[in-house]
């Protein structure tokens, strides 16, 4: 248990800096992303084929109707349910909504969610052992691979995450009001390995 947790108000975000074990390199690095536009994309009734075609045409993305990430350098579609995706892109929320509206027209419902989540990247040598304490999903490389996504319950909080690469690094979308509680659970789980909480990213 990190000392800071006993003093930090439960409503505050874990401050940037080193938490838990202080010696050596941090076992886990947590990196918040503040400039990512996020939207939900929900296909209209029977429109998944149309949405899939449009995604290929407009973004060059082969959209999977599954808990997978389909992405290009520019935009990512994360499957969160049948005919349902979370879309992320490094641009202004209005710009992303405009692009998606152009691409999908009335074939899908679009909702801006850019402020709805804390987007957090987690990586580092102890990220696996730390996430085993939090995530009730098998993250073994033989089972969960880069491009896999899961919506699940972490420390009693519903959230979505996906694997970015095989270093491994993961991206978490944490409902904003749960972010302080999530970071407390993370600090607790990563205390033995040492957690580096990075400041908000500029990108």
């Amino acid at each position: 248990m990190s000392e800071i947790l006993s003093d930090l108000p439960v409503t505050d975000l874990l401050p940037p800096g080193r938490h838990g074990r202080a010696d050596g390199a941090p076992g886990v690095i947590a990196h918040p992303l503040s400039r990512l536009a996020v939207a939900t994309l929900v296909a209209c009734k029977g429109a998944v084929p149309r949405i899939t075609e449009a995604a290929l045409a407009a973004f060059g993305v082969a959209l999977a109707d599954a808990p997978k990430v389909s992405f290009t350098a520019d935009i990512a579609f994360i499957g969160t349910g049948p005919g349902r995706w979370l879309v992320t892109a490094s641009q202004a929320p209005e710009a992303l909504m405009a692009r998606l509206t152009d691409a999908f027209g009335d074939g899908a419902a679009l909702t801006d969610q850019s402020d709805a989540n804390l987007m957090l990247d987690l990586y580092g040598p102890a990220v696996g052992e730390t996430l085993a304490k939090l995530v009730p999903v098998d993250l073994d490389p033989s089972v969960f691979r880069p491009g896999d996504a899961a919506a699940t319950l972490v420390a009693l909080m519903p959230l979505t995450f996906w694997q970015l690469n095989d270093s491994p690094a993961y991206r978490f979308a944490i409902p904003r009001s749960f972010a302080p509680a999530f970071l407390r659970a993370l600090a607790s789980a990563a205390a033995s390995a040492g957690l580096e909480m990075a400041g908000p990213a500029r990108g």
Binding site: A43, K45, G46, V48, D65, G81, P82, G83
Partner: peptide, 10 residues
């Protein structure tokens, strides 16, 4: 429960 294989409520 929606009855379709994809669950797409379709």
């Amino acid at each position: 429960a929606s009855g379709s294989a994809s669950g797409d409520a379709s």
